[in-house]
Design a protein around this nucleic acid. Sequence first.
DNA 1: AACCTTGGTGCTTCCGTGGC
DNA 2: GCCACGGAAGCACCAAGGTT
Length: 611
Amino acid sequence: MATPLARTTKISSNDPIFISSSDFSKECGIDLSTAYTALELASERLFTRFFGYTNAEGDRVKMRWLNKVIYKAGQGGSELYFTDEVLLLLREFDALNPYTKYKKEVVLRLKKDYSLDFYHLAKKHQTMGGFQISLDELFQQLGLPESYQDLSNLKKRVIKPSLDEITANTDIDLSYENVKRGRSVVGFKFTVKEKPKPKVIETGRDPNTPDLFHKMTESQLDTFSSKLSELPEVQKMAHVGEDMKPFIAHVGGSLSHNYRNRETLNADSDRTHLNEHELDTNEKCMTAIRDRIPEKRRKDAVLCIEHLVTASPEWDGWGTEKETAFFEQSKKWLENKYGKNNVVSTTIHRDETTPHLVAYVVPVDEATGRLNAKKYIGGSRHTLSQMQTDFAVEVKDLGLDRGVQGSKAKHTSIKEYYEKLNNYENEPGIEKGLTYEIPEPEFLESKNTYGERVANAMIDQIFDQIAPRFDRANALASQTEKLKKELSDTKKTLDEVQQRAKPYLDIINEYNHPNLEKEFNKQVAKLKDNFDSALEHHRFLKRQEEQERFNQQRELRNQLHLEQEQKKQLAEQERQEKERLALLRRQELEKQRKNEPKKPDNGNDNDYSPS
DNA sequence: AACCTTGGTGCTTCCGTGGC
DNA sequence: GCCACGGAAGCACCAAGGTT
């Protein structure tokens, strides 16, 4: 804080530079209550510090920064008296000496006692890639106490912590190695490397357009928005300041999304050129909003209303003249509702799923000149609902109807949408978690070395695993596009089918009348009765038929039985007749034998005759 | 006021290694 | 091969500041 003043004013060692506690607390970002003590301590430490150099004659010169410090108890600050040599050096070697020009943020981040000294040495030798320094020189330059003659303590407590802090908090990586003579360390070789610059998002917008939100990462934007709102200059522009802080941060974020100056995941960059902005940059838009907000206002006033006007994705007007008319009528409706001057700026987005219009409205009541959002969108919980109904009337001629009143449908907020994108691991089909193997510590390996090794191994493994997931994500995106097209084709087919079916559906609807239904039911009842009678008759006939069939079968059986009996009788008669004939034959033969004379026996064996 | 965390300091112990 | 020295690691203690 003091050195810029010492550099730029023509003061001598007798002129003090006054640093107040309040300035000190602001600059260092600490509470005012602790700033008094901190300033006193800082002054004390600076008073004890010295530096050295070799003059033209080759003599070593040691010099203190300050020759006097006065704590002004009554004025809440300290008076610093720089030595003439320091003042001279600051003035004359300003251009060559980077030490006095380091950013305050860098200086404040270096908390260790010797970090700043090492940082200074490193920056001085950065272009050469590093520097070598003997132990004696190091002790002299840093003003190290004798206790650090123990090299282990010097490394452990001075060099390593300082280098770690510099590497973690500044724009350079600083490392070191021993310089030995025999086995003794006689100095150190420090290596300085510039860190790679942080990546920026290329938005493809006009490079000639100056823009506060251009080429920043998401976190940078957030930080910037927040910091911007804290700047006295911005607060001054905001007339009052305090209540503009969150407002500028919020609107800044909204505008950078609106003007596509930040990465917008749900937008198709190929269609971004189709977007229309009433004011061509977000900076102009922010200025216009700010200019419209009255200087005198309540602390809790609503400063701006962001409107989003759209219609169902299925509407057939998208991409036709109807779309243009829709947005024109929407704007006209907003201007009628809020007054033309209050509708500060409008934007049409055509690069998201459904085209929509975004309008920034400052709710100034023309009658009183005051902010009065309640007049337009407050008062009753039905106001917004009524607004939807009014708007529906405005665009009814375009074939649009009001949405379902009192619908419980819940939109996916942008936050939820992005959270879902980020939590892709929970999606089905996506592998969960990243895995990595932690290497085993080597024998006698130090914790620091092992820690670095583990960290490097984990980073390598995680990168290896992330890369294919990116590929898969791209593949999924392409698949999604394909499915979207299929869905679109299916919708077209469905529309065609509905068109074809329409005449039939109309006929059905035409006959869909209560009396017809009664008649239909009557006819059905009659038919049912007829059916029941017919069924009964059918059953009767069937019973008769079965009875007849039974009778026929019985008759047949009787007849068969009779025939069998007759057969038996005939067989019996036949047998009796045979027996009678046989008897008659025997009787005839007996009679013949009795009547014939007796013949001699001539030994004829063939002669057979009964005896 | 008690407790915890962080950073600094002094000291000891252990082990590897270069010199003799 | 012995030994003194350098370097690494860890313990104990203290002070200051923050948290509960």
